[in-house]
Design a protein around this nucleic acid. Structure first.
Length: 351
DNA sequence: AAGGTTTTCAACCGCCGTCCC
DNA sequence: AGGGACGGCGGTTGAAAACCT
């Protein structure tokens, strides 16, 4: 037996809200609040709407402090940073940007940022498939992006690709290519701690901190993954800062292999954070790192590599360095910490 | 100008966790 | 303890707008 519907769907209105409905809902909530019961609310005010629909309309559109559109570069970076690290937790991500709703952030990611960061890469791959006789093995270790995408959740696949792009193949000086700068960056690490703190106080320092309540919603393995604004008093911050200070690594000691020692944690840590922010910014705003610093609009990793080599070369959508697909179908890691990451993605983790 | 295509985003759907009886 | 009610969330849809040919 299925669950009873939250409302009588035969008698509720659906579709776009009229100005009259908006006015009724807004006036009532501003005067009486929601009364703690969204289901009963539409009946009270004579709206032929589902309670959930009222709630959504209020939260996403009618609330007085809502901001629509006009995402700033800082917000872009916050969204990308958090998406890479915690996945599609839109409510948590939105909570970092006052006035933004999860729906807005989700739409913005799906329609703009994702395309900005990932879209052209797929297009490139598809066009190459059409214009050449590449065997799948040459491209992606036997898995086409489409096929591999089926094995991974969309979110995990996207984030895997973002990790890859941030790895900066074409940039030998990339943050990702300097292991000494890495924090223990594996998002599934036991005590993973990913601290993005831009030293430029005018940029990331303006980032609101994750609320403790939100942090508690992240599964334990990822609870230490978020942006921090150290000067904001917050129980979670205190704990994080304590961990940071007490760790010889600059972040909590790992309990497993794959972690990277750092001699000068604080400076490296900040350098790492700055490096990541810079690279994210580059990806978002098309600053070209591999053509001697020349600006080149809309250039993504594939095009970048193509230019570097003067010919169309195979740049895998999926990472291949250090990865081997074993005969059993699993990924072997050749001493590459990222192999573990991919393995866990393959296992279906969706952070 | 018209028709087709793509993009955007508000709204819906259904699952899940929590609360309360 | 168990089950229903509800809120919250992420994924998806589809109409409207924008853009292209």
């Amino acid at each position: 037996m299925g669950r009873a519907p939250c409302c009588d769907k035969a008698h509720v209105k659906k579709g776009p809200w009229s100005p009259e409905e908006d006015a009724k809902l807004k006036a009532y909530i501003e005067e009486h609040g929601t009364g703690g019961n969204w289901i009963a609310l539409p009946q009270k005010i004579g709206l032929k709407r589902c309670g959930k629909s009222c709630r959504l309309r209020w939260l996403n559109y009618l609330r007085p402090d809502i901001r629509h559109g006009g995402f700033s570069e800082e917000e872009d970076q916050i969204i990308c940073s958090l998406y890479i690290n915690i996945g599609s937790r839109w409510s948590i991500i939105a909570a970092q940007m006052p006035g933004r709703t999860d729906n807005d952030v989700k739409n913005y990611w799906n329609t703009r940022l994702k395309k900005k960061l990932l879209g052209k890469r797929r297009d490139s791959w598809q066009s190459r498939r059409l214009s050449s006789n590449h065997e799948p093995n040459e491209e992606t270790n036997g898995m086409s992006p489409d096929a591999s995408s089926q094995a991974l959740s969309a979110s995990a696949a996207e984030r895997m690709q973002l990790h890859k792009q941030l790895q900066g193949h074409c940039n030998p000086f990339s943050f990702y290519n300097k292991p000494g700068l890495w924090p223990k960056f594996h998002p599934m690490g036991d005590e993973l701690f990913f601290h993005i703190q831009h030293t430029d106080a005018n940029t990331i320092a303006a980032t609101p901190v994750l609320q403790a309540s939100n942090a508690s919603m992240i599964e334990p393995s990822c609870q230490n993954v978020f942006l921090i604004k150290p000067d904001i008093p917050n129980p979670m911050n205190a704990k994080i800062q304590e961990d940071l200070n007490s760790s010889t690594l600059g972040f909590p000691s790992p309990s497993s292999s794959g972690a990277l020692r750092m001699e000068n944690p604080s400076s490296n840590f900040n350098a790492a954070a700055v490096g990541l922010q810079d690279e994210l910014h580059d990806l978002l705003y098309q600053k070209n790192r591999c053509s001697g610093g020349q600006e080149q609009q809309q250039q993504t990793e594939f095009e970048c590599s193509k230019d570097m080599n003067g010919e169309k070369v195979s740049m895998d959508w999926w990472p291949t360095d250090g990865f081997e697909k074993s005969s059993s179908g699993s990924w072997d890691s050749a001493s590459n910490p990222q192999a573990d990451l991919l393995q866990e993605y393959e296992l279906g983790y969706d952070l």
